[in-house]
Amino acid sequence: MEKVAREYVVGTVEEFPVGSHKVVKVDNREIGVFNVNGEFYALPNLCPHQVGPLCQGKVSGTLVANKDTDWKRTWDREGEIVYCPWHRLEFDIKTGDCLAFPDIKIRSYNVKVEEGQIKVW
């Protein structure tokens, strides 16, 4: 998959407190930058479902139910899930995995912090 050609400074650490996220513009791309418990992640602001602005959605947890929970719905993964504001399709911020469709994974951008600056590429 094509990547952003070079590193872009998208803001300072102070602008992205823990639990926050926002959409930044890099060239003509919109990228969602997330601070999940001090780790930074970046995803395209584009939902593969109907090209909604995915990263403008809320960061949340999700309901989990399986054999381990005795099939009871439990709240889990708080702060690790973003869902599209258009149709609520959920994505794992850390991996880009779509929770509903195991075959769907969106790309992740590289992020690093250098001297207080957040760089994406």
Binding site: L63, R73, R88
Partner: peptide, 15 residues
């Protein structure tokens, strides 16, 4: 419906 409301039925591992 699942696209939007998967969260209601989180035990499904597939559509």
């Amino acid at each position: 419906e699942y696209v939007e409301n998967r969260r209601d039925i989180p035990f499904l591992e597939h559509p």
